[in-house]
Design a protein around this nucleic acid. Structure first.
Lengths: 242, 242
DNA sequence: AAAGTACTGTCTACGCTGTAGACCTACAGG
DNA sequence: CCTGTAGGTCTACAGCGTAGACAGTACTTT
């Protein structure tokens, strides 16, 4: 009774939202569309149905390219993190880590809605089962540091310190501060006037400082402290400088 | 046609799961039950219906105590963070921050499933609109540090560095490493044998080091570096030591 | 050329989710 | 006593992730 649709396409011929429309749907197209939705509408807006609509396909099609939604999100995070790269042979290990940190920050700022995923997914998946692309930077940093003379254990320690710092930094930098963007006075723009003066005098007084947050600067100053501290703690001479 | 239930209770008289059963449901009871579910079954297991069932009430009852689910989750995070306290008058500011850091870590380890919320919610709500309980530690640290002689701007800087580090640290410490708990060999227990030797030689070799992770130690070493570094950067003499 | 196999796409359906709206009751203050 | 407010419940809606079954396509093997 039921006429099966011409299998390449079926829904929405008539101008509807869907994009590409090439015969086969590729994994990369799925991930790219997912990232676009996350960037544009936030991570909660990404549902399998919403994603399928953006691709002009049936929702169930997505399950041919990912076993479930969590895996799909992991894969999106992976493609983004795969853009990190490390020059393993560079003898200036500190410089190389600085560059890595700056790349990570750049990526986080480019995809702020993805950051909760980036910092949070590793809590749910054992290290060895994580997408390979997310482990590659780790291996690369280990190579960089062992070539520079660190022990393997110290290299791991440095990696953890660096990414701990990085996660903390981007979470800081992406904190929402502004409540009322078009207001010109700092206190009002940040909404700090809502806080009772009796209980939060210092915080209220900080309005101009909060408003002048300098993410790039904070990153660099943090790296100064971290790299110098690590080099000292691990008993190496610091070429850690600027 | 429809007989209304005796309004105090209605569902599940007969031994069903529900707890307390006092006439009025309190906000605290709601939050406590929510935390219990999150701790016991993970944050994704907490639905409004699941929570209502645990309380032996109709799901819609919850909306008398919180405007929506996000606010309810924020409130849970708030009650947990309210347990942090700071001795504002203590002249040993570094010692006080160390204590704060240890408390934060203790809380995070006690409620691991809550950690994604703790680090992630501030991205969604402007500072001034966050639950007051989460701003109180900030105000307290500002008071501590300004009394100890820091400028307000430096005090904020220290606060941010500390909580950035703390967030990064607990995310590190709560990373899932173990794939197969009952296995005795480190490599197999962590599942690292899955990684191709060619691509991940260093990571695979790290199995014993990964298995011996010492969270408390890492926190202290991180604090050593951070507090000394901050004291130096901000040009104060460091009483920052142990 | 035929048959088998794997892959992709679609449809339907199930049990779940958050919450708006309406209603009803109990209690507090006048 | 009446009135207002806050808490509890019920129903209903639109959307969710995904299991299962089926159909067509594109290779591979015979």
């Amino acid at each position: 009774m039921r006429i099966p649709p011409p299998p390449g396409r079926a829904l929405k011929e008539p101008g509807a939202a869907g994009e590409g429309r090439e015969g086969r749907l590729t994994r990369d197209a799925v991930l790219a569309a997912a990232l676009e939705i996350i960037d544009g509408e936030g991570a909660e807006a990404l549902s399998m149905r919403r994603l399928a609509r953006a691709l002009g396909r049936d929702p169930m099609t997505l399950y041919r390219h990912a076993p479930n939604k969590a895996a799909l999100l992991d894969a999106v995070a992976e493609t983004v993190l795969a853009r990190l790269d490390v020059e393993r042979g560079d003898p200036d290990w500190a410089g190389q880590l600085r560059a890595l940190a700056r790349s990570y920050r750049r990526i986080a700022l480019a995809h702020p809605h993805l950051v909760p995923l980036l910092v949070t997914r590793p809590l749910a998946t054992p290290l060895a089962l994580r997408p390979r692309g997310t482990l590659r930077p780790l291996e690369a940093v280990l190579a960089l540091l062992t070539r520079a003379g660190f022990s393997a254990a110290d290299a791991l320690h440095v990696y953890r310190a660096l990414f701990g710092f990085l996660h903390g930094h981007v979470l800081n930098e992406l904190q929402e501060l502004v409540e009322n963007p078009e207001e010109s006075d700092d206190l009002l723009r940040l909404g700090l006037h809502r806080l009772p003066i009796g209980e939060f005098p210092l915080l209220r007084a900080l309005a101009p400082v909060l408003a002048a947050y300098d993410g790039a600067g904070e990153l660099e100053r943090g790296l100064d402290i971290l790299l110098a501290g690590l080099a000292a703690t691990l008993g190496r001479d610091a070429a850690a400088g600027r």
